[in-house]
Amino acid sequence: MSNLLEIAGLNKRFGGLQAVDRCELSVREGSITGLIGPNGAGKTTLFSIISGFTKPDSGQIRFGGRRIEGRGAYEVARRGLRRTFQIPRELKEMSVLENLMLVPEGQFGDRLLSVLLPGARVRQEEQVNEAAAREVLETVGLAEKADIAAARLSGGQKKLLELARCLMSRPRLMLLDEPTAGVNPTLIRHLMKVMQKVHASGITLLIIEHNMNVIMELCERVVVLDRGHVIAAGTPAEIQQNKQVLDAYLGGVDA
């Protein structure tokens, strides 16, 4: 299968720190790829660059064969590459449902013109979007929370909402930043099922994850990042045997 995402020679420096260092990485279309590495390896920075929030110093990023590096965040998102945030960024004052109804692209009601015209078209559109949002909430298991303010969700539920918001747009590629961090074991099982469902529906996933069980069970391919550089890539089993990877993790503990 072809590569949906290809990164070549990517660099990013913050002051004295080389956060991303000649990074090479590819994600096959239809795969679940894991991205692991010790703390401070540059995983989140890499996500931030791919999704257009941070400009790289140099290098190329191809998504679906087209260059996207240096494009703005919203343009990258529009091409079907979406991310979640490590610390959930739910819109607190809105209901869970509204958090999702915000997402669909090209809403007529999102244009100024709609305010001046009769409301029928917007109402109809809203009904369609609401149905879609409720379906997504059903998928992730938040259907019962649809109408409460997002601020009142528990930490784990916020993680689910983060995932749901990403799923709502039916992207080609989802970048999930530690989807199970800080979540209890029961909910981790649930989140893994959701991710498998999402994957089965045809969405490619790239996941930053510290929980090795999650990686082992979900991912067909794992990429290891250390100090901004990819030091290994392969199947989970291969990575487990890789001495360089072990060193990187142990070195990380020492330092």
Partner: peptide, 13 residues
């Protein structure tokens, strides 16, 4: 509430 989120869902903030 959060401009970053709005950019992340593909809207020109």
């Amino acid at each position: 509430e959060d401009e970053t989120v709005v950019a992340s869902i593909g809207k020109p903030t």
